[in-house]
Write a protein that binds this DNA or RNA. Sequence first.
DNA 1: CCTTATGCCTGAATGC
DNA 2: TGCATTCAGGCATAAG
Length: 294
Amino acid sequence: MPELPEVETIRRGLVEYLPGRVLADVEVRLPKLVKNVEISAFSHILSGQHFTDVRRLGKILILDFQTHSVLVRLGMTGQLTFRDPEKLDNNEFSISPLTGLQRAHGQFAPDKHTHIILHMQDNTSLCYRDIRQFGKWYLYKSEHLRDSPELNSLGPDPFSEEYTLASLAQNLKKTSRAVKIALLDQAVVAGLGNIYADEVLFASCIQPTRAAASLTDAEIEAVFVNIKQILLSAIANRGTTFSDYRDANGEKGENVGNLKVYGRGGEKCLTCGTELLKGRIGGRSCVWCPQCQH
DNA sequence: CCTTATGCCTGAATGC
DNA sequence: TGCATTCAGGCATAAG
């Protein structure tokens, strides 16, 4: 599921391809994904404009055009890939010798899960594929982007100047919610999802059920530092792929092997050997070490 | 203000 | 083999 490191990896891929390219036609096959404007306006406004930049805030990807910006929330299974027909080999998919399954080689051919295609004048395209259709797209005039509810409701991005120990401490100390749930709240800090929230709490030796307001200053500082370190490390590994996540080139990330707790419920803690517990906190699955985390 | 529940979705995994 | 059920979860929204 795309959290900050996955979205950042997609962004870094797209920024190599998109700026300067001109949109010829916008093909929206599943109109409900575009949330704040009619499809006709969405297509009409964007057609003919060129990409100026690709940015990210938290888990939100921002596609900048000359007069407008598009916000993309990838939800659970959203994929944004760049497609260049001139670079397609004829063997776009191959059969994995290990699994017998079709394995992507870089680019995705549009299929029944491809819901939005931005066609460029040079015949390349940006394909949005989303199996579970939890993704959301928004269109804003550039000057209104900062006032959008989607960006306005975000807390500090961990790699922005707004992300400080003081801001994190303030946001954690004012809520009695479980710290795990608080870390998933995009208004507290923007970018963590279930994978990295579990990883941050393990690295910080904090039980996920603890009330956020009960954390000591030292624990908050550990969380503050570990958020940045764990996300940076995940970005260096090009994100975590469990099933659906792919980068702008359709490639998987390599960060699964870097995870200490997420996806390892019932296995042994890599630090102390205790069996990792798996439970539900606030409706979300959660894995932690009962020995290492207090 | 808070917490909990629900709906949106498909596909993989599981149970009978 | 097939059919029904459960689970995965980001996020908005409603209810308690």
